[in-house]
Design a protein around this nucleic acid. Structure first.
Lengths: 145, 145
DNA sequence: GTTCCTGCAAAATTTTTGCATCAGT
DNA sequence: ACTGATGCAAAAATTTTGCAGGAAC
């Protein structure tokens, strides 16, 4: 189950020749997450684990991972960048955000993916990444029926 | 063709009782745009028109418009918030961003909209807004075929 | 030993807030 | 006149950069 983290570390080493402590901690944390985290959240959780990691190193690690396509940057519309691991296998989800309680939940939908591929092709684009965010009231926060 | 701007100003006045100069300029500018603008771009263009408008007023105007659902906030993934008018009639587009040249172009796709509605319904969400961003290489920047 | 990563601090950017003043009703 | 919007400046929050020191090779 740690395959993403392992392969990410290997790829980082192939590029730079190193893989220091901060990067490894960030990669391992992201490998354990099911959904996106902000840089601040990553920093806090790594600190909670007892490590002395600077926020700048978190950003630098995320930047390197993003360049290699190992993480996907997710913008939920609140001005904060979040990151989650990008599975090379194509497993891949998007996000529902509740405007009331702030809850974020992932979803996948083949019809949505198909529509995106079709749009991209029709416009002559070679789409490398795509991001879908739905905002609204979740079942719990919606005015009771 | 100025119906959006007019109705937006009316709705702002209904809420606050006023519609001062800065808000009117921002609304009128957005009414003339076909795609999203950043707060800084709005500020610059309003200034170019000869008006003395503070950037804070631009943000405040956008904030008020967003609360009323009159503009949609768009995150293109570069950490800058952009805004565009939200047509109540349902006319509604998304964005293709070229990673190479930075070009942004709008698109619409009924199949995509249908898939989104279907996902939202299946998850019990009452979706008020949704945002789709596709990133990749546009026809011009793509390695020549 | 060399090279790149790391942590801290400072800078840059984007967005928000405080406050005196101005403008719309 | 009253009330809220506005502009300027300062603050806050997020992200980037500089640099000395340390860790991996």
């Amino acid at each position: 189950m740690e395959t993403w983290a392992e392969s990410a570390l290997v790829r980082l080493r192939n590029v730079s020749g190193r893989s220091g402590g901060a990067r490894r901690l960030v990669v391992q944390l992201l490998g354990r997450q099911d959904c996106c985290l902000s840089a601040q959240e990553i920093h806090d959780r790594v600190h909670a684990g007892g490590a002395r990691v600077g926020i700048a190193s978190v950003y630098r690690a995320l930047d390197g991972l993003d360049e290699l396509g190992l993480v996907q940057r997710v913008d939920l519309g609140d001005g904060i960048s979040r990151f989650e691991r990008a599975d090379p296998g194509g497993d891949h989800h998007h996000h529902l955000v509740c405007d009331d309680c702030g809850k974020v939940e992932p979803f996948e939908d083949p019809a949505l993916e198909a529509a995106i591929v079709s749009v991209a092709g029709g416009r002559g684009y070679d789409v490398a990444a795509h991001d879908v965010v739905l905002r609204g009231a979740c079942g719990d926060c919606r005015p009771a029926p």
